[in-house]
Structures are given as structure tokens and as C-alpha cells.
């Protein structure tokens, strides 16, 4: 057996035994690459996800909601930070990660290409988008790469807060004036399907799924996770007294799950491929902030060097 084969055997043994892979451990190149792709995509989603909700920060209708929203958006920035740090343990720099986001070679969750047109969208995002994210993230707490798994544990705690706050906002709207209730229904109608698509294509169509499952980067399939989300959402919609956006939703005695209508995958791919309302806007916003901040980062660097030289002179 070559030494590479031995390393591979040891790696697979750890994976089988549910041991975590740590940054200093040997790992196959493709595992590393796959992780960088997935964790950075996850991190980018947190960062780009700040924008649609941030869109309502200056317009939140009460002081309490303003504070709650700001602290949520700030949490998302923090999640981005943990995830970037986890990605950096794989030997890629923050600057490289940002460049990949900005030139389009790295992706982020396509859900954030949908516009937040009304205040109710903020509630729908907390409830449905963070809700879908958490279904995925709970399963990722058991992912095989240690830093990623640990980041997920931390993140999940905060995400469950976001889901509760989002749902609580939807309750206030659904139980409010007729106009407020209409806002809630409209937001649900627009965000339900894109939220289901957050789980990715059907398993049969998913390019990265099989390998990721084998390496235990992913722990459950796209379709299984999506089904969990569909199932848990039915009762929540009912409690709100809103109409389910899927007219075909129906309990299946045999499977013990809800069956729903087929998703509009053409629309999904069209948005992924750039035709969403906000694809260009989100990246342009990120680029603009980054460029606007360039002189600040340069000054920080220059100051640090000056201080270092001063200390050097004093020591000499």
C-alpha cells in the first residue's frame, strides 16, 4: 500500500467511526475542495443575507422590531465570520473568499436574490428562510469536519431565535388588521417556494450530493431535509390562519408525510442563473461597500506598520 493509500484508509476509518476531521489532519484534496466550496457558500449566504433584511432596518415599524431586526442582521454577520474562519482553516484567505464571491465563482443561497418588498417579508424570512436553514444546519452539526460542525452548533442556537422572532412577527401580522394579514399572506406566498428550493435540487439531480454523503460532509439528502421542512410548516401556517401556498398539500397516511405540488424548477434555475430581481444588486452592494472601505483597511495597515517601526526604533 502506498503512503497515500494508507492516509486515505485512515481518513475513511475516521469518517466511518464518526470521528471529526481537524484542520491539521490529512484529508483528500477533493474533500478539502468540497468543504471550501460548501462552507464558503454557506458563509457568503450569511453575508449576502444581511442585505434583504437590512433593507428594512431604517423602516421597521416599532422600536422593538427595529432593535430585534438589527440584532438579527448582526447575528448573520457573526455567522458569516465564524464560517469564514472555519473556511480559513482549510488554507484559503478571507481576501480569496471575498474575491470568489464578488467574481461569481463562489455562490450564495439564491433565496437572497428575491426582493423584500414589504415589512412582512422580514417576518417570512425569519420564519421560513432561517427555518429552512436551520433544518439543514441541525443535520450539519454532525458534519465530519470539526470546525464546520462546531460553527454549526453555535449558529443553530441563534438561528432558532431568529425563527421564533420571525414567526412571532407573522403572528402579530396575521392577528392584526386585515391589511396586515394580507401582507402576511402575500409574504408567505412569495417566500414559501423559494424556501423549499433552499434545500437544493432533487437528490437525483444534485451534482455534489453522493460524494458529500459518503464523506459525511452532508448527513441527510436534499429531499429528506426538504420533506422535514414541508411537514413542520403545515401546522405553522394553519396556526396563523393563513392559506397554504401549495394547493396540492395533502397528508399521506402511508408515508407519514405531507405530499405537495412539484416545484417550479425552471424558475429556480432562472434565478440562480442571474435573472432574479436582486442578483446583480446584491453583488454590486457588496463590491461597493468593499471598495468604499479600501482606504480604511489601507490606513489601518499603514498605522500598524508605523507603530511597529516606532516600537522597533525604541527597542534599538
Amino acid at each position: 500500500m502506498s503512503s497515500e493509500e494508507k492516509l486515505m484508509e485512515n481518513f475513511m476509518r475516521k469518517i466511518e467511526a464518526e470521528e471529526k476531521i481537524e484542520p491539521k489532519d490529512w484529508m483528500p484534496k477533493a474533500y478539502r475542495k468540497n468543504l471550501i466550496r460548501q462552507i464558503s457558500q454557506h458563509g457568503h449566504s450569511e453575508i449576502i443575507g444581511m442585505q434583504p433584511e437590512g433593507n428594512w432596518l431604517t423602516r421597521a415599524p416599532s422600536l422593538r422590531r427595529k432593535a430585534v431586526l438589527l440584532s438579527k442582521v448582526q447575528d448573520e454577520a457573526g455567522h458569516g465570520l465564524y464560517l469564514y474562519s472555519a473556511t480559513e482553516t482549510l488554507g484559503i484567505s478571507r481576501a480569496e473568499l471575498i474575491a470568489a464571491l464578488q467574481d461569481g465563482s463562489a455562490k450564495y443561497a439564491s433565496i437572497f436574490n428575491y426582493p423584500t418588498q414589504t415589512w412582512a417579508d422580514v417576518g417570512a424570512i425569519g420564519w421560513l428562510v432561517d427555518g429552512a436553514a436551520i433544518v439543514n444546519q441541525i443535520s450539519l452539526q454532525r458534519t465530519s469536519y470539526g470546525p464546520y460542525a462546531r460553527a454549526m452548533v453555535r449558529i443553530c442556537k441563534e438561528e432558532s431565535f431568529h425563527v421564533r422572532q420571525g414567526y412571532e412577527m407573522m403572528i402579530a401580522l396575521a392577528q392584526g388588521s386585515p391589511a396586515q394579514k394580507a401582507l402576511a399572506q402575500d409574504a408567505l406566498n412569495r417566500f414559501y417556494w423559494p424556501a423549499l428550493m433552499m434545500f437544493g435540487p432533487h437528490d437525483s439531480e444534485s451534482a455534489h450530493s453522493a460524494r458529500s454523503m459518503q464523506w459525511k460532509i452532508k448527513r441527510e439528502t436534499n429531499d429528506d431535509l426538504r420533506q422535514k421542512f414541508v411537514d413542520q410548516t403545515v401546522a405553522q401556517i394553519e396556526f396563523l390562519g393563513l392559506q397554504h401556498p401549495d394547493a396540492d398539500i395533502k397528508w399521506n397516511e402511508e408515508t407519514g408525510h405531507y405530499d405537495g405540488g412539484e416545484l417550479d424548477w425552471d424558475e429556480f434555475y432562472s434565478v440562480i442563473n442571474g435573472n432574479g430581481h436582486c442578483n446583480r444588486q446584491r453583488i454590486e452592494h457588496h463590491v461597493a461597500a468593499h471598495e468604499e472601505g479600501a482606504w480604511v483597511r489601507e490606513a489601518m495597515q499603514a498605522y500598524r506598520e508605523k507603530q511597529r517601526n516606532k516600537a522597533h526604533k525604541q527597542a534599538a
Binding site: L57, L63, K66
Partner: peptide, 29 residues
Amino acid sequence: LTEWTSHGPFLEEDIAMSNVALDYIGRAR
């Protein structure tokens, strides 16, 4: 200060500015 959120010069600073904004909104309340 909330107008800085997602416009900060880098991520850590974006978070720090939101922190200050939150303090002021909390104080206002």
C-alpha cells in the same frame, strides 16, 4: 448608525458598528 449595516469597511467593523447602533436604540427605548 444602522445605515452602516452591510456597508462597513470589513466584516468585524460592520458587526461593531451594529453593536453601537443597538446600544443607542436601546438607550432611546
